[in-house]
Computed example of a mutant assay.
Amino acid sequence: MGAVALGMVVAVGGIVHASTFDDLVTVDVDGVVTDVRTESETVRELLAEKGVELDSTTKVSPAVTSDIDDGDVVKVRRAKAVTLVVDGKISQNTVHDVDVESALQTLGVQPREGASLSMDLDERLGLDGNSLVVSNPKRVTLKVDGRKRAVTTSAPTMEALLAQEGVTVGALDEVKPGLGAYLKPRQSTRVVRIKKVTRVEKLAVDHEVTYTNDSSLFAGDTEVVKDGRDGLDRARVELILADGKVRERRIVSRSSVREPITEVVKRGTKNPDSVDGGVWDRIAKCESGGNWSINTGNGYYGGLQFSLATWRSVGGPGYPHEQSKATQIKYAKILQARSGWGQWSCAAKVGVH
């Protein structure tokens, strides 16, 4: 009887020992939950036993130094990189949440009704990095095919917006911002239609001008000896059109239709100061003090005080005061022959009638 009793005590003692050191614990590693029996005394030992690796960024609850008790729940949350884009604003973040919804709460992001998300709210976050795009309904301006319109959209990118609006993009077309660009509130967007066309054009070829010096003409005076004429080419031209307007023009090939003719011009070399002005010097002395380059600002110019209208009426070039003395006298003679000496009030004063 005593032996039997002793055996029972040992057996009972063994049972008590097993219940004390074989605890039932729940381990939750990033949402993966398992119930385990363990003889580990601390959280660290338990996780090591189950092959759960820890680093300095991992969060464990309760702390790894905590003792294990039956019924404990041990949570392990590893760090997860999240590239977050909210309505075009990009940020880099690290969270310890298990799913998208929890991460958004941690990051203080509350998607509005109708928002577009690149990941489902209940989708688990990966350990190798996550890209999370939240695009709330927003107003943007879209210009395409000559029409500009306001659009309310949750499309995260320009490409998604164009797909939503049924806009096709050709291989040469320009999209601003780019197809992969994230849309921001109140953003202006545009599709520029690019087209290449080739056509045949007639192109003028400038003629050359050659000059020969002539001592019988005053310096500054010229005389055309032989008229020049522009040539003409036929050219094959490639045009780059942006929304129908020429952006770039390139000549692919050209051939001559008519050769240009060189113009020949005599150019005077005679010193205008050597001119004996005679009566014109006397008139200029009275009209302008003999200053052939004067511009007083009163609407009359040069030594003989031409008005611009009168000067032009006799074929005078430019402004009178910018021309040589000889040139001013040349056109004064034309005016005198046409209208008489009365054109100059000083003529009578210097004895010319």
Rank of each mutant, 00 (worst) to 15 (best):
K270Q: 15
K270S: 14
K270F: 09
K270W: 10
N271R: 15
N271W: 14
N271E: 14
P272I: 11
S274L: 14
D276Y: 12
D276S: 15
G277R: 10
G278P: 01
V279F: 11
W280I: 02
W280F: 12
W280D: 06
W280C: 06
D281M: 04
D281W: 00
D281A: 08
D281F: 01
I283M: 08
A284R: 01
A284G: 05
K285D: 13
K285P: 01
C286V: 07
E287S: 05
S288Q: 07
G289V: 05
G289R: 02
G290K: 01
N291M: 10
S293T: 15
S293G: 11
S293E: 09
I294A: 12
I294K: 05
N295R: 05
N295W: 08
N295K: 06
N295F: 11
T296A: 14
T296K: 14
T296S: 14
N298S: 14
N298M: 12
G299V: 09
Y300N: 15
Y301M: 04
Y301H: 08
Y301R: 03
Y301A: 00
G302E: 04
G302T: 06
G302Q: 05
G303C: 03
L304S: 08
L304E: 07
Q305K: 14
Q305N: 11
F306R: 03
F306M: 07
F306W: 15
L308E: 03
L308D: 01
A309H: 03
W311E: 00
V314T: 10
G316K: 00
G318F: 11
Y319Q: 15
Y319I: 14
P320M: 00
H321Q: 12
H321S: 08
E322H: 06
E322K: 11
E322F: 01
E322V: 05
E322G: 04
Q323M: 04
S324Q: 01
K325F: 01
K325Q: 09
A326G: 08
A326H: 08
I329M: 15
K330R: 13
K330M: 13
K330V: 08
Y331T: 05
Y331R: 05
Y331N: 04
A332K: 06
A332Y: 12
K333A: 15
I334W: 13
I334N: 07
A337F: 02
S339W: 10
S339P: 02
G340A: 08
W341T: 04
W341C: 06
G342W: 06
Q343D: 05
Q343G: 09
S345V: 13
C346P: 01
C346Q: 07
C346V: 06
A347R: 09
A347W: 13
